[in-house]
Each structure stands twice: as structure tokens, then as C-alpha cells.
Design a protein around this nucleic acid. Structure first.
Lengths: 137, 137
DNA sequence: CTGATTTCGACAATCATTCTCAACTGTGCC
DNA sequence: GGCACAGTTGAGAATGATTGTCGAAATCAG
């Protein structure tokens, strides 16, 4: 376990990304970039992509692939714990949810078919109360 | 349900796509295209994309977005029934699975948060016995 | 501070997918 | 069978997200 991954430096840009992520929305890398720019940052798009990816690798942010193929990022509660989300398709607001029953189920199914190295994705999407009210449903 | 969608014509290309899909693997549109070409077809890539999409709309094939962002297609058992898959990350072989417990759970969670128009994605991936044996894991 | 190394950012490149449009072909009608 | 015509096709261009490139700028160790 010797530092094969030399801890990334804490640069202004990295700090900005982390700060922006505090809003805890699910947004695409491009959207985060726009947001940072609109707040006066001069950060580059490639930097945002790199930053989000490295944070995702470290488990600091969750990355989910939307139906459109875009990857959405969001800062997550715990770096370690495995969890899923209920995300609003209209505004991106997300709630972390826990699906203990499913974790067990997944492994049972996998074993039945002798599949190894199981990984699973559960994505719940819907329209949140606010957006429903606003007619964005 | 009155034919607002004028039934697509049965062309040579459409027939070829349908035939290829009989192998029931999960493959990307590009992969299906290559396969058809390698079998002597002169079908175009755009046609494969269009064909797969329209079949997906009709519920004839399942479409899932892989982690890479590619969309994978596979002919499915029942047009109507909602189901999920356990897919091999190495060879694409997939098994249809049923997760009745989860369907209920999803709706319960959604209601707790007052989210409407719920949709869910469950993707189980692993490495099948054959690929594990072949060391592709 | 100074130098070695990493990270940045503008832009080019890549990859999957969609669009454009002229040529082609099922389908319904005679 | 043959005709007309709207739906389809296929090559290539266009798009949109993401990744690679590389000189310039910034960070960290000494």
C-alpha cells in the first residue's frame, strides 16, 4: 500500500470544486464548470473533469450515468458506505437511500448463477414535490 | 393506443437486426453493427442505431447504459414485463432476473419522499463462471 | 527562495450517437 | 404487373460529452 497514488495537491481549483460540491446536487461536470465560472472562477473544463474523477476515485463523490449518457456527480455523505439515491429528474435534487434488503438479494442472485465480482447499480428517479408543484413533471 | 406510431416497414435491414438479436447478448449498437457487417450485411451504422432505438421504444429490446456511457441492447423475453438483468462484464452474457421485493421497496421509498413518476434502474454485473475460468475476471 | 514536479487551461482529438439528404424500396392502388 | 409516394437507408458531416496534449503557472520540499 505504498503511495502508488501520490495524494493530489490542494490547489485553488481543487478547493473551488470541493466548495461548489457543498450544494450537494447531482450535476454533470459541464454544469459544475458553468456554475464555477458564473461565480467568477477561471477554472477550465478539463480541470473540472479531472477533479471530479479523482474525487470519485477516492470515494468523495458519487458518479452516476444518466439515461442520456452524461455522468452526474454529487458529493456523498460517507466515503466508505455503499448507498443509492432517489434523484429528481427535473431539478437534480437527490436523497440518499438505504436498500439493505437489496444488497442481500443481489448476492443471493449472483451466487445462484455462480457469477463473481458482483457490482450493482440502483437508480431511483422521480419528480420531487417542488417540481411537481411547479409543473415540471 | 391508436396507431399514432405508424408501424415501421419490414425492410431487409430491419429483418437483419431482428435476426442478429436472436443471440440474446447485450451489445452496443456499434458491436451489433460490426457483427452484421462481418456476416456480410451492408447495413449502415445509423440504421442499426435507428433500428435498435425503435425496437427499444416498442419494448422489443432492453437498453441499458453501461458505466462507460455506451448504451447496450439485448432482445428481451417479454415485451410487457418489467425485469432486470445480471450481466457478465467480460462477455456480455446476461440472465433475466426478477426482483419483486425491490419493486415494492422502490415505491415505498418514493412515497416517503413524495416523489412522483418513479422510474428505477437496477443493474447487476459480475463475471460469469466461464469467464472466471478463462481468467477474464 | 529555488528548483523539481504537479497541475492548470486552452485547444485539439476521440468516441458514441444523431442529423442531413439524396437515393432507394416497401406498400397500397390501378 | 406497374406507379406513385411516403417511409427507410447509408455515407458522411455534425454534435455533445469526455479525454489527451503541452507549454505555462503554481505547489511543495529543502
Amino acid at each position: 500500500m505504498n503511495a502508488t497514488t501520490p495524494a493530489p495537491r490542494m490547489t485553488r481549483q481543487r478547493r473551488e470544486i470541493l466548495e461548489a460540491l457543498d450544494t450537494r446536487d447531482f450535476r454533470s461536470a459541464q454544469a459544475w464548470h458553468e456554475r464555477l465560472r458564473s461565480e467568477g472562477s477561471t477554472i477550465g473544463l478539463a480541470t473540472v473533469y479531472r477533479g471530479l474523477q479523482s474525487l470519485a476515485d477516492q470515494g468523495e463523490v458519487d458518479a452516476v450515468v444518466a439515461e442520456s449518457g452524461e455522468t452526474l456527480y454529487r458529493r456523498c455523505e460517507a466515503g466508505d458506505e455503499h448507498h443509492h439515491h432517489l434523484r429528481c429528474r427535473a431539478c437534480g435534487k437527490a436523497v440518499e437511500i438505504d436498500v439493505p434488503e437489496f444488497e442481500a438479494f443481489a448476492h443471493r442472485i449472483a451466487e445462484q448463477h455462480s457469477y463473481g465480482d458482483i457490482r450493482h447499480t440502483i437508480e431511483l428517479t422521480g419528480v420531487c414535490p417542488e417540481c411537481t408543484a411547479a409543473g415540471k413533471g
